Simulated assay, not measured.
Amino acid sequence: MKKLLTGILCCFSAVVVAQTKGVVAVVKDPMIDSLIAKRIELNLKPATTGTPGSVSPVRPGTAIVSQVGYRVQIYYGSDRREVYNEQSKFNSSYPELNTYITYKQPNYYLRVGDFRTRLEAQRLLNELRPMFPTLFIFREKINAPNLEPQQ
């Protein structure tokens, strides 16, 4: 009798556990399409750098292209005023290079340039060595520089 009940119980449990194919219904919020359109619109605007009022060398109406490149870090520290002083010191000497200030708790980081190769970043680092004591080269996402031929 125990064997019979065990056999019947096993058959019923196999039927209960068996799964059938289902249908997946994807529910999409209508705001997703508007967010995608907004993202495309923002990518067509010119990029701004970390300094107020300055604009990177991207022509209006063209897409902002990001790529992996190199930047030179010229300062890091926890004093906000000091990082802005270093930024103005650098901008007075090199107004053509973009500066970027980032904050990662508890420090501020001042990085400069959008270099496609490490060699370009190394040239700037060697040039800046007398003015700034702690210099490092970092590989990160950069704003692609304008590649029009110089005349």
Rank of each mutant, 00 (worst) to 15 (best):
M1D: 06
K2P: 07
K3P: 06
K3M: 01
K3C: 03
T6N: 13
T6A: 13
G7D: 15
I8Q: 12
I8T: 11
I8A: 15
L9D: 06
L9H: 01
C10V: 15
C10S: 15
C10F: 15
F12R: 04
F12L: 14
S13W: 13
S13I: 13
V15F: 14
V16I: 14
V17E: 07
V17R: 05
A18N: 13
Q19R: 06
T20A: 13
T20M: 09
K21W: 06
K21C: 10
G22L: 10
V23T: 13
V23S: 10
V23R: 14
V23F: 06
V24W: 11
V26T: 11
K28A: 11
K28E: 09
M31I: 07
M31G: 00
I32Q: 07
D33P: 03
D33H: 12
L35H: 02
I36V: 06
I36K: 05
A37G: 00
A37D: 00
R39S: 06
I40K: 13
N43D: 04
K45M: 11
P46F: 04
T48M: 15
T49R: 13
T49A: 10
G50K: 12
G50R: 05
T51C: 12
P52A: 09
G53S: 08
G53E: 07
S54W: 14
V55A: 03
S56Y: 11
S56N: 05
P57H: 13
P57D: 15
V58C: 15
V58E: 14
R59I: 06
P60G: 10
G61F: 02
G61W: 00
A63P: 05
A63N: 08
V65S: 11
Q67D: 08
G69I: 04
G69L: 01
Y70W: 12
Y70S: 08
R71V: 03
V72H: 00
Q73F: 02
Y75D: 13
Y76T: 09
V83L: 09
Y84E: 15
N85A: 07
K89W: 01
F90V: 08
N91W: 00
N91C: 00
S93Y: 09
Y94G: 01
Y94I: 03
P95R: 11
P95M: 04
E96F: 02
T99C: 07
T99K: 04
T99P: 02
T99N: 04
T99S: 14
Y100S: 09
I101F: 03
T102W: 00
Y103I: 07
Q105M: 11
N107S: 01
N107Q: 03
N107V: 03
Y108L: 08
Y109W: 12
L110V: 08
G113N: 01
G113K: 01
R116A: 03
R116F: 04
T117Y: 02
R118N: 12
E120S: 06
E120F: 05
R123Y: 01
R123T: 09
R123S: 05
L125M: 12
E127M: 08
L128H: 07
R129K: 15
P130A: 14
M131Y: 14
F132A: 07
L135R: 06
L135C: 04
F136Y: 10
F136S: 07
F136Q: 10
I137E: 01
R139W: 03
E140H: 01
K141N: 00
I142A: 03
I142P: 00
N143T: 03
L147F: 05
E148S: 14
E148F: 12
Q150Y: 04
Q150N: 06
Q151E: 12
Q151Y: 10
Q151M: 07
Q151W: 04
